[in-house]
């Protein structure tokens, strides 16, 4: 009985982290939000996961935006593509 009540109210860490990962992809429902917030109040590991997840999102955004600034398409490849274009124009 107690366990059943706990289960409807309290998320496991596995469920809580799932919601944290998924919230970048879809809006959480109100009940999901409430239960997640409640879990984060009492669980320091998931709180850390939440912070780290947000940080990883930010880092990925940065990686995507500033990707490989100093990289160049190798000259050989450029020459062979250029050659093909000139020939087939």
């Amino acid at each position: 009985m107690l366990k059943k009540m706990m289960n409807t109210l309290m998320l496991t860490c596995s469920k809580a982290t799932q919601l944290i990962s998924v919230k970048a992809y879809r809006k959480l429902s109100v009940s999901e939000k409430v239960r997640l917030r409640l879990h984060l109040l009492t669980c320091s590991a998931c709180k850390a996961f939440n912070l780290q997840s947000t940080f990883i999102d930010k880092a990925l955004e940065k990686l995507g935006a500033h990707a490989a600034h100093h990289h160049h398409l190798p000259e050989e490849r450029k020459a062979s593509i250029q050659n093909h274009i000139t020939k087939n124009l």
Binding site: L63, A67, H71, H72, L73, Q82, I85, L89
Partner: peptide
């Protein structure tokens, strides 16, 4: 201007793809 594609966009297309 296909003749200048590689020169103008080769590097930026490549960088976009790399990550």
């Amino acid at each position: 201007n296909p003749e200048s594609w590689v020169e103008n966009y080769g590097d930026s297309l490549y960088r976009y793809t790399l990550v």
